[in-house]
Amino acid sequence: EAHAAIDTFTKYLDIDEDFATVLVEEGFSTLEELAYVPMKELLEIEGLDEPTVEALRERAKNALATIAQ
């Protein structure tokens, strides 16, 4: 499951495998979680700032909209 989540994140969020791995290690496994989890939870991840989190959430929401079509 972790590998599938990493693949999904790299494909749809335009991030590298290392960043995707950090997200999975922090407990995220779906685009929905990244799109809708409280921003505070993402900001608790070391190295993430508000602009990065906002961009990540926007990419996740856009990916979900694209997949739904």
Score class of each variant (00 low, 15 high):
residue 37 V to M: 11
residue 68 A to L: 11
residue 20 A to C: 02
residue 65 A to M: 11
residue 32 E to D: 06
residue 32 E to M: 10
residue 66 T to H: 12
residue 12 Y to H: 06
residue 7 D to A: 15
residue 32 E to Q: 10
residue 57 R to V: 11
residue 13 L to P: 00
residue 1 E to T: 12
residue 50 E to V: 14
residue 16 D to M: 05
residue 21 T to G: 08
residue 65 A to Y: 08
residue 50 E to T: 09
residue 53 V to R: 05
residue 31 L to I: 08
residue 31 L to H: 00
residue 47 G to A: 06
residue 24 V to A: 08
residue 3 H to Q: 15
residue 4 A to W: 10
residue 13 L to C: 03
residue 21 T to M: 14
residue 62 N to V: 11
residue 23 L to R: 00
residue 67 I to W: 06
residue 43 L to A: 05
residue 27 G to H: 03
residue 58 E to V: 07
residue 27 G to A: 02
residue 40 K to Q: 13
residue 9 F to H: 01
residue 14 D to E: 12
residue 28 F to M: 03
residue 53 V to Y: 05
residue 27 G to N: 02
residue 32 E to G: 06
residue 60 A to Q: 01
residue 52 T to N: 05
residue 66 T to R: 07
residue 10 T to K: 12
residue 11 K to A: 07
residue 48 L to Q: 02
residue 61 K to S: 06
residue 2 A to P: 08
residue 52 T to Y: 07
residue 3 H to F: 10
residue 54 E to D: 07
residue 22 V to T: 10
residue 59 R to F: 04
residue 50 E to G: 12
residue 14 D to F: 11
residue 51 P to C: 11
residue 54 E to G: 07
residue 8 T to W: 09
residue 42 L to D: 02
residue 11 K to L: 08
residue 62 N to S: 10
residue 58 E to P: 00
residue 16 D to S: 14
residue 3 H to K: 15
residue 38 P to V: 06
residue 19 F to P: 00
residue 12 Y to G: 02
residue 46 E to L: 15
residue 50 E to A: 12
residue 30 T to V: 03
residue 40 K to C: 08
residue 27 G to S: 01
residue 23 L to C: 02
residue 3 H to M: 14
residue 41 E to W: 13
residue 69 Q to K: 05
residue 68 A to E: 09
residue 20 A to H: 00
residue 49 D to I: 04
residue 12 Y to C: 05
residue 22 V to L: 15
residue 17 E to A: 13
residue 56 L to T: 00
residue 8 T to S: 07
residue 1 E to H: 11
residue 9 F to E: 01
residue 27 G to M: 02
residue 68 A to T: 09
residue 68 A to K: 09
residue 35 A to C: 08
residue 26 E to R: 15
residue 35 A to M: 10
residue 18 D to I: 13
residue 1 E to W: 13
residue 4 A to T: 11
residue 63 A to Y: 05
residue 63 A to F: 05
residue 57 R to Q: 15
residue 30 T to K: 07
residue 4 A to V: 12
residue 16 D to E: 08
residue 8 T to Y: 12
residue 61 K to E: 07
residue 59 R to D: 06
residue 21 T to K: 15
residue 5 A to P: 06
residue 62 N to M: 12
residue 36 Y to W: 10
residue 37 V to H: 10
residue 13 L to V: 02
residue 56 L to E: 01
residue 45 I to R: 05
residue 50 E to R: 14
residue 34 L to E: 00
residue 14 D to V: 05
residue 22 V to H: 11
residue 63 A to M: 05
residue 59 R to H: 07
residue 56 L to C: 03
residue 69 Q to D: 10
residue 34 L to C: 02
residue 40 K to W: 13
residue 33 E to Y: 09
residue 57 R to A: 06
residue 66 T to M: 14
residue 18 D to T: 11
residue 23 L to Y: 01
residue 5 A to N: 05
residue 50 E to N: 07
residue 58 E to W: 07
residue 17 E to W: 14
residue 49 D to K: 04
residue 36 Y to V: 09
residue 22 V to R: 15
residue 48 L to Y: 05
residue 11 K to N: 06
residue 59 R to P: 02
residue 59 R to S: 12
residue 30 T to E: 04
residue 63 A to I: 07
residue 41 E to I: 13
residue 19 F to D: 03
residue 10 T to L: 13
residue 54 E to K: 14
residue 35 A to R: 03
residue 48 L to G: 02
residue 57 R to T: 06
residue 40 K to Y: 12
residue 16 D to G: 09
residue 7 D to W: 12
residue 63 A to S: 04
residue 41 E to R: 13
residue 19 F to N: 02
residue 45 I to C: 03
residue 36 Y to L: 08
residue 37 V to C: 13
residue 6 I to G: 02
residue 19 F to S: 04
residue 20 A to P: 01
residue 15 I to L: 06
residue 1 E to L: 12
residue 51 P to L: 13
residue 32 E to H: 09
residue 49 D to C: 05
residue 53 V to I: 14
residue 29 S to Q: 10
residue 34 L to Y: 01
residue 13 L to R: 00
residue 45 I to W: 04
residue 15 I to W: 02
residue 46 E to N: 11
residue 5 A to S: 09
residue 28 F to L: 05
residue 11 K to F: 12
residue 39 M to C: 06
residue 54 E to I: 15
residue 65 A to H: 09
residue 42 L to I: 07
residue 56 L to A: 01
residue 7 D to H: 14
residue 31 L to A: 01
residue 45 I to N: 02
residue 21 T to R: 15
residue 24 V to S: 03
residue 53 V to P: 02
residue 12 Y to W: 15
residue 46 E to R: 11
residue 24 V to K: 03
residue 11 K to S: 06
residue 24 V to D: 01
residue 64 L to F: 03
residue 33 E to V: 09
residue 62 N to K: 14
residue 12 Y to L: 07
residue 62 N to Y: 10
residue 51 P to Y: 12
residue 65 A to K: 11
residue 38 P to C: 07
residue 47 G to E: 04
residue 44 E to W: 09
residue 1 E to M: 12
residue 48 L to R: 03
residue 41 E to K: 12
residue 51 P to W: 13
residue 61 K to M: 09
residue 2 A to Y: 15
residue 50 E to P: 10
residue 37 V to Y: 09
residue 50 E to S: 09
residue 31 L to W: 02
residue 67 I to Y: 05
residue 41 E to L: 14
residue 36 Y to F: 11
residue 27 G to C: 03
residue 22 V to W: 14
residue 49 D to M: 04
residue 8 T to I: 14
residue 14 D to A: 11
residue 36 Y to R: 11
residue 1 E to G: 12
residue 62 N to H: 12
residue 24 V to M: 07
residue 43 L to I: 07
residue 22 V to P: 00
residue 24 V to H: 06
residue 59 R to Y: 05
residue 52 T to V: 07
residue 20 A to L: 02
residue 41 E to A: 12
residue 50 E to Q: 12
residue 6 I to K: 06
residue 69 Q to M: 07
residue 39 M to A: 08
residue 5 A to T: 08
residue 47 G to F: 08
residue 55 A to T: 08
residue 9 F to T: 00
residue 53 V to W: 15
residue 43 L to T: 06
residue 67 I to A: 06
residue 17 E to M: 10
residue 41 E to C: 11
residue 49 D to A: 04
residue 27 G to F: 03
residue 16 D to P: 09
residue 67 I to V: 07
residue 22 V to K: 15
residue 30 T to Y: 04
residue 10 T to Y: 05
residue 48 L to C: 04
residue 18 D to L: 10
residue 43 L to N: 04
residue 2 A to V: 11
residue 9 F to Q: 00
residue 3 H to D: 09
residue 52 T to E: 05
residue 15 I to T: 01
residue 66 T to G: 09
residue 7 D to N: 13
residue 20 A to Y: 02
residue 7 D to M: 15
residue 35 A to E: 03
residue 17 E to N: 10
residue 43 L to K: 05
residue 48 L to E: 02
residue 30 T to L: 05
residue 57 R to P: 04
residue 8 T to F: 10
residue 8 T to M: 15
residue 18 D to P: 08
residue 22 V to Q: 12
residue 51 P to K: 14
residue 31 L to E: 00
residue 56 L to N: 00
residue 65 A to D: 09
residue 5 A to G: 06
residue 18 D to N: 11
residue 25 E to Q: 14
residue 35 A to Q: 04
residue 55 A to D: 09
residue 8 T to H: 09
residue 64 L to G: 00
residue 7 D to F: 11
residue 51 P to H: 14
residue 21 T to V: 09
residue 3 H to R: 15
residue 53 V to Q: 02
residue 46 E to Y: 12
residue 68 A to Q: 12
residue 23 L to A: 01
residue 55 A to Q: 09
residue 59 R to L: 12
residue 44 E to T: 14
residue 10 T to N: 04
residue 53 V to A: 15
residue 60 A to H: 01
residue 35 A to T: 06
residue 20 A to F: 01
residue 21 T to E: 07
residue 27 G to V: 01
residue 3 H to L: 15
residue 44 E to L: 14
residue 67 I to G: 05
residue 21 T to Q: 13
residue 49 D to V: 03
residue 21 T to C: 08
residue 26 E to A: 15
residue 33 E to D: 11
residue 62 N to G: 07
residue 9 F to D: 00
residue 23 L to P: 00
residue 29 S to P: 02
residue 6 I to T: 04
residue 56 L to G: 00
residue 2 A to H: 13
residue 45 I to Q: 02
residue 42 L to H: 03
residue 49 D to G: 04
residue 18 D to E: 13
residue 30 T to Q: 05
residue 54 E to Y: 10
residue 5 A to Y: 06
residue 3 H to I: 13
residue 45 I to G: 02
residue 67 I to H: 06
residue 33 E to R: 11
